[in-house]
C-alpha cells in the first residue's frame, strides 16, 4: 500500500514538473502556420508549414487594448464618479479601461512634494520601453478640485512636459476625490487654502482596473514599479 502511494505521489510530482516545462516554452517567441494546418503546433524558428508550405508567422498575441466588458469586484471602474480631463472632456474612470494605469494624487499649487512626485512619474515614464508606450496611461488626479480647473491642469501639464497623449489629468468633485483617495488608501487634508498634507503614493492598475502595485514615498527606487508595469502590460 505504502509503495503504491509513493508511486502515486512521485507520478503526480512528475506530472506537475512536466507541466511547468511546457508553460515555460510558451514564453519564448513562437512561429505558427497562419492556416493552422497542424492545429496549435508552434515552431521556435521561422520557416514554412510542412503541410501547406505557407510562411510561418509570429504567433500573434491578443491585442491588449481590446474592450472587455467584464469588470471584477475589485476594479476601480466600479466607481461611477465623473471627472473633467485637462482637455475639457467629461469622463468616468471606466473610459480609462484597456490600458495599464499609473496613478498619483497631487495638487498644482503644491510647492514641496508634488513637483518631486511629478518627477517620479516622469522618471517611471522615461524608463518604460517605447514598445509599451501605447499600453500605459499616466493619470494625475487633483486633490484640490476647487482650485485645479481643467485649464490649470493643462497649464501644469505643459509646464511639466506631461502634455503627451499618455498623460491624463483629472479634476473631480470633492466627494469623488475622497472616494477615489479611499480606494487608493491615499490620505490628505487641507491645512490652509492652496496647501494640503497628503500621502505620496504611486499606484499601478491593470487594464481591468485592479490594483497591482503601490510605490510609497518620494524619490524612492522605482525599479519594482517599472517591473510591475511591464509585467502588467505583458499579461
Amino acid at each position: 500500500m505504502k509503495s503504491k502511494l509513493c508511486i502515486l505521489f512521485f507520478g503526480t510530482t512528475l506530472f506537475f514538473g512536466s507541466c511547468n516545462k511546457a508553460s515555460k516554452a510558451i514564453d519564448k517567441t513562437e512561429f505558427q502556420c497562419p492556416m493552422k494546418c497542424e492545429g496549435d503546433k508552434v515552431y521556435a524558428e521561422k520557416g514554412v508549414c510542412p503541410v501547406c508550405k505557407m510562411d510561418l508567422q509570429l504567433k500573434s498575441k491578443p491585442s491588449k487594448t481590446v474592450a472587455i466588458d467584464f469588470i471584477s469586484d475589485e476594479s476601480i471602474f466600479n466607481l461611477t464618479s465623473k471627472w473633467n480631463t485637462e482637455e475639457g472632456k467629461i469622463i468616468t474612470l471606466k473610459e480609462l479601461k484597456g490600458k495599464t494605469l499609473v496613478v498619483v494624487m497631487i495638487y498644482t499649487t503644491c510647492k514641496a512634494a508634488c513637483p518631486r512626485l511629478a518627477a517620479d512619474m516622469r522618471n517611471i515614464e522615461a524608463k518604460i520601453p517605447t514598445d509599451y508606450k501605447n499600453e500605459v496611461n499616466y493619470i494625475l488626479v487633483s486633490i484640490d478640485p476647487k482650485t485645479d480647473t481643467p485649464e490649470k491642469l493643462k497649464k501644469f501639464a505643459i509646464e511639466n512636459y506631461m502634455d503627451d497623449n499618455q498623460w491624463t489629468f483629472l479634476q473631480g468633485t470633492e466627494i469623488g476625490v475622497r472616494e477615489f483617495a479611499n480606494v487608493l488608501a491615499v490620505k490628505y487634508k487641507e491645512i490652509s487654502p492652496l496647501d494640503f498634507s497628503h500621502s505620496n503614493i504611486i499606484s499601478v492598475f491593470d487594464p481591468l482596473g485592479e490594483l497591482v502595485h503601490q510605490q510609497e514615498g518620494l524619490g524612492v527606487d522605482n525599479n519594482e514599479t517599472i517591473k510591475k508595469i511591464i509585467e502588467t502590460v505583458n499579461n
Binding site: 514641496a112 508634488c114 487634508k189 491645512i191 498634507s197 505620496n200 518620494l218 524612492v220
Partner: peptide, 10 residues
C-alpha cells in the same frame, strides 16, 4: 515622513 507632504505642520 517621506510618505506625507507637510505632515510636520500637524
Amino acid at each position: 515622513n517621506n510618505l506625507f507632504c507637510g505632515s510636520a505642520a500637524i
